[in-house]
Design a protein around this nucleic acid. Structure first.
Lengths: 199, 199
DNA sequence: TAATCTACCAAACACTTGTTAGGGAAGGAG
DNA sequence: CTCCTTCCCTAACAAGTGTTTGGTAGATTA
């Protein structure tokens, strides 16, 4: 682990920004250097390689996210409240690591086969356990509909949350908590009017 | 427009498959050639360039999709039924153009700035009009909840539908229509149990 | 003052990229 | 048989890639 100097963190942020905008492979180190105001070779004073830069961005984000999830799960809430807390925590994470989330969504699929990025598959598996476990508990307890396909619902909720990173802009008119509230309202209660009762 | 020979279509399919799996920029023409069983240079007997190959894949998909949407919208259905038909049509399109959908989701964001791929922005705008128009009509008529943020709902529904392309595998246990039915059930009525009434 | 460290530049490196040119084998058409 | 088309290969090209090496200006430390 390198010493995390101020300049280093700055470079890491601009790299993440460029990766998110252009895609990792489409991004050249010269492009990152341009955006940061130095020459390509100078980046190697701070980082070992382009790949390790990506690695650092992703693992920092995932560490924080998993820690947040762990806190929520340890709180001993009911299934419905746990889902709400997980969603809210996710939107906060999007707010703080917007670029990292975008990169994660675009690249994790084909990165996780690489040994170096094996932790991506680990993280994915932990998410799955957390969400699906909570959903199943919710169905048993009666918080959620009994006819749910839990795996399908998991993907539904997960994707719904994370895609927000592709259009969310921090400092906009909606706070993370506000967006979480609206999303939860749709996911939990649906968008159909309640004036017509279902059969 | 080149003559669409059998071999050509075959190569286009494998190219789409590799693009979807690896990402466009990360895919080399030699990799496509490998997968297709010929050498890199030989691809240029069939295609003008790597970029034009991508172009053809995306525009073929979008043409078919927009045609499908147009048919739905011309049917004169109510807002609720229109949404259902649009979702179902989308899942059918995912079933038929899985690779193209995956590519579209990954690359369209940064491709649409390029003049050659300007039609991507056009298509996106048409989707927006179709969905948002229907949702607004639905709120007015009373099919959908009055307190919906229509733009947020649009992104919610849109993303929810298209991300399915990232995990959907044709020939699986769920048909496109079945998946559409379950998705609609969640989106329209929510995943919360109806035993508890909302305030 | 001398030594050390940080952050950077200038210039090159080996390699990969998309693409092209020229040719050749197979098969159908005249 | 000859001509033409289709499909592919061999071999190379220029440009761009991530990365390395050696050096330097400026601050910090001894």
């Amino acid at each position: 682990m390198r010493p995390a100097s101020e300049r280093r963190r700055e470079l890491l942020d601009t790299a993440a920004e460029v990766f998110a905008a252009q895609g990792y492979d489409a991004t050249t180190v010269r492009r990152i250097a341009d955006a940061a105001g130095l020459l390509a070779g100078s980046l190697y004073h701070h980082f070992d390689s382009k790949e390790s830069t990506l690695d650092e961005i992703l693992s920092a984000f995932l560490d924080e996210l998993l820690a947040g999830y762990a806190t929520v799960l340890a709180a001993g809430l009911g299934p419905g409240e746990t889902i709400q807390a997980l969603v809210t925590e996710s939107f906060r994470e999007i707010d703080r690591h917007r670029a990292a989330v975008a990169i994660y969504r675009k690249e994790s699929r084909h990165l996780q086969d690489q040994p170096r990025f094996g932790y991506l598959a680990d993280a994915r598996h932990r998410f799955e356990t957390a969400w699906i476990g909570t959903l199943e508990r919710g169905v048993t307890v009666g918080d959620f509909r009994a006819d749910l396909d839990v795996r399908l619902t998991y993907r539904f909720v997960r994707d719904t949350v994370w895609v927000a990173a592709s259009w969310y802009r921090p400092g906009g008119q909606h706070s993370p908590e506000e967006i979480a509230r609206q999303y939860l309202s749709m996911v939990l209660e649906g968008i159909a009017s309640r004036t017509r009762t279902r059969t």
